[in-house]
Design a binder for these strands. Structure first.
Length: 366
DNA sequence: TGTTATT
């Protein structure tokens, strides 16, 4: 088990780059709207926080121009951060003062001004290993700060030994080229007084997940559904103005109860429903509640990690060419198909909860 | 030897 020494030490404030006009909006020198005083980035959000809860929390401060909880494009899972753009810069300031450092479940959220988006700030996160166990987060920052502006830093610690450094950490620089210089300057070098050299390299990009990683993630999500929330009810994130917020699931389409541990057997035993059995090349799987924008690639991405997929099809409206909400996947092996169904049925894809089952003879009726 | 900071 791993925990974090600190996520809050490095605070970032971006100097506004625009010009404030009397009684008017902030206008940047190039004429584009300048949101540097209203746009915030929120980090270390609880995994299970929904867009609605996110909006509700930050909307309690003041009027929101826009906000977005950033999610994985494929799985729809929260990436643990989001953006809030307020109408009034004063509300952005207030949000930082009142919500930064707020403890939500096991996380301590960080609220700060968002830096202007640009390619140069992407992929600037470094993975550092071989650090002396005695090196603190501050020591590490000091070592790296000669190469640029540090946005975040952390050292991983062992939880069972109550906070002993694992000699592994992360450093995020403001700019990618700063991170590159730090690698050049520090990789393979011994910090002052250290016995061993440290390794410094770019951290794995979480958006480039392997099939195996995606599969693991899907299994974990499935397991969570089957065992219920990880934490005690009272530890779960609550908002006073969200009296009956559900966790992740907005609606429960059709006959499937929320979080119900539906098994293949219970599905096949439903009255009047029979499996069609292997048809031609393999087992046909019915996927329901796809978005109108869904395409074949999402089906490949979802089912591919579970085994051999021979065919996918998204059913579209003839005139609009939009997905009609469902599709089919053919898998060669029963075991893999069954595992895919067990893992993906009830899975949240973006705002939607998928229903996944073997295609049955009566699926289209009722 | 592994968290989740750029819409």
């Amino acid at each position: 088990m791993v925990t974090i020494i600190s996520t809050m030490e490095t605070q970032v404030s971006n100097g506004p780059s625009g010009t404030s006009l009397p009684n008017g909006p902030v206008i940047s020198t190039n004429g584009a709207a300048d949101d540097s005083k209203t746009n915030l980035i929120v980090n270390y959000l609880p995994q299970n926080m929904t867009q609605e809860e996110f909006k509700s929390l930050f909307g309690s401060i003041g009027e929101i121009e826009s906000c977005k909880l950033v999610r994985d494009k494929i799985t729809g899972q929260s990436l643990g951060y989001g953006f809030v753009n307020y109408v009034d810069p004063n509300d952005a300031d207030k949000a930082i003062n009142t919500l930064n450092g707020l403890k939500l479940q096991t996380k301590t959220i960080k609220v700060s001004y968002a830096r202007p988006s640009s390619a140069s700030i992407r992929d600037a996160n470094l993975y550092v290993s071989g650090l002396p166990k005695t090196m603190s987060q501050k020591d590490m920052e000091q070592l790296f700060s000669q190469y640029g502006r540090i946005i975040t830093s952390r050292i991983l610690v062992d939880q069972v030994t109550a906070g002993i450094s694992r000699g592994v950490g992360f450093i995020r620089f403001d700019k990618r080229n700063e991170a590159e210089e730090a690698i050049k300057g520090l990789n393979g070098q011994k910090p002052l007084g250290a016995a061993e050299p440290i390794t410094v390299k770019f951290a794995n990009n979480p958006s480039q997940k392997t099939g195996q990683a995606l599969l693991t993630q899907l299994y974990q999500t499935a397991a969570r559904r089957f065992t219920g929330p990880l934490h005690h009810q009272t530890q779960r994130f609550r908002l006073d103005n969200l009296l009956n917020a559900s966790y992740g699931v907005k609606s429960s389409p059709s006959f499937l109860p929320r979080f119900s541990p539906i098994t293949i057997d219970s599905m096949t035993s439903l009255a009047g429903v029979n499996l069609t059995g292997p048809t031609g090349a393999g087992w046909c799987i019915f996927v329901y509640n796809l978005s109108p924008e869904a395409d074949e690639s999402v089906l490949w991405q979802l089912f591919g990690p579970f085994g051999a997929v021979t065919n996918v099809k998204v059913i579209r409206d003839f005139t609009t060419n939009k997905c009609k909400g469902f599709g089919f996947v053919t898998m060669t092996n029963y075991d893999e198909a069954a595992m895919a169904i067990a893992s993906l049925n009830g899975y949240r894809l973006g705002d939607r909860v998928l229903q996944v089952s073997f295609k049955t003879s009566k699926q289209h009726k009722a």
